[in-house]
């Protein structure tokens, strides 16, 4: 506990550094996945190619990626941009598929109705399809947010400051409280950002809460029926 009291400043700085690295990849992977997801559904050839391509990114282990990436994008190994790009790639590995699936799941009848009432291609995408795919995108970005915030700590072993620095420093100096502080704060940040995303989803997609309530009631009924049967 003493350690925690004496190092409030350091902890504050590391939390800020952690968020500065973790937040851009979360936003970037959401924003970039939309055009790629759209493209994936647009042509017959593009879906398999794009989804497999981005899916493969996920097979690249994080620490090796942090080490190889500077050679490709020309940043320094200990540059935080290096980490931001790597985490964005991981985010995209998940989000491209999620976005493509979400956009593809929009009911064809709804699409037809939208063009029937006069939406042009672009406004139909932004005002009908994208909002309807919203809940799927939200579910995807929540997973990305939590794993990005957790993965950011790995950067500490190559010397990029984040809450992970508390792990490496605590290990070298043998201070358990420091490591525990890092773990707890990382989880709090992850859950905090996750909660924020849920809140943002409620504000931006007020219709979802109503819908999911109905679905879960129906599911409960189905489950009960299944038990009876």
């Amino acid at each position: 506990m003493n350690w925690l009291v004496n190092n409030g400043d350091l902890i504050g700085q590391l939390v800020v550094a952690h968020l500065l690295i973790a937040i851009p990849p979360i936003i970037l992977s959401l924003v970039i996945s939309v055009p790629i997801g759209w493209l994936a559904n647009r042509y017959a050839w593009s879906r398999g190619t794009l989804l497999t391509g981005f899916g493969l990114l996920y097979a690249i282990p994080s620490l090796p990626l942090f080490i190889i990436l500077p050679l490709i994008i020309g940043t320094g190994l200990r540059d935080s941009i290096n980490l931001v790009v790597a985490l964005t790639l991981y985010g995209l590995a998940l989000m491209v598929r999620t976005t493509a699936d979400g956009l593809a799941s929009v009911d064809p009848d709804v699409r037809q109705s939208a063009s029937g009432v006069g939406f042009s291609g672009r406004s139909q995408f932004f005002r009908v399809e994208l909002p309807l795919a919203g809940p799927v995108l939200l579910a995807g970005i929540r997973v990305v947010a939590v794993s990005t915030i957790s993965l950011t700590t790995v950067g500490a072993v190559i010397g990029i400051s984040s809450l992970g620095s508390l792990f490496t420093d605590g290990f070298q100096r043998g201070i358990g409280a420091e490591i525990l502080t890092g773990i707890v704060l990382t989880i709090i940040l992850a859950l905090g950002v996750d909660g924020l995303l849920v809140l943002l989803g409620r504000i931006l997609m007020p219709w979802v809460a109503v819908n999911s309530g109905r679905v879960s009631r129906r599911e409960r009924r189905r489950a009960r029926l299944a038990v009876v049967a």
Binding site: V143, V146, S147, I149, S150, L151, T153, V154, A156, V157, L163, G164, L166, F167, T168, G170, F171, G174, G176, I179, L180, G182, I183, T186, I187, A190, L191, D194
Partner: peptide
């Protein structure tokens, strides 16, 4: 979900300390 939020590096190091 909770385990996904748990940083593996931290977990590994704290267990190593113990």
């Amino acid at each position: 979900g909770a385990i996904r939020a748990l940083p593996t590096l931290g977990l590994l190091i704290i267990i190593a300390l113990i």
